[in-house]
Amino acid sequence: MRVLFFAHLQDATGCAVTDLASPSPLNHEQLWAVLLERFPGLLAHRGNIRLARNWEYADAETRFGDNDEVALIPPVSGG
């Protein structure tokens, strides 16, 4: 799957996008485990981040698969 980082999360990870491979779809907990292993800097932001899958906010049931575009959305500040 393709994972996108926005705003100050790019400073925390050092990149805007990364690719994760997973043989089976991941739930939130599993996805976070993979992300934090690769980007420990995300830990400080975890409580404020919402996950999106294919341009929609994920809910608790969402599974993240290999063909998905996943985005980490920090608190927004538009307008």
């Binding site: 926005f6 999106a52 906010y57 959305i73 920090p74 927004v76 500040s77 538009g78 307008g79």
Partner: peptide, 14 residues
């Protein structure tokens, strides 16, 4: 709309 835009729409003051 403005209240919810400021909560949910992925736009950031960078």
């Amino acid at each position: 709309f403005m209240d919810r835009l400021k909560q949910d729409v992925p736009i950031w003051k960078r």
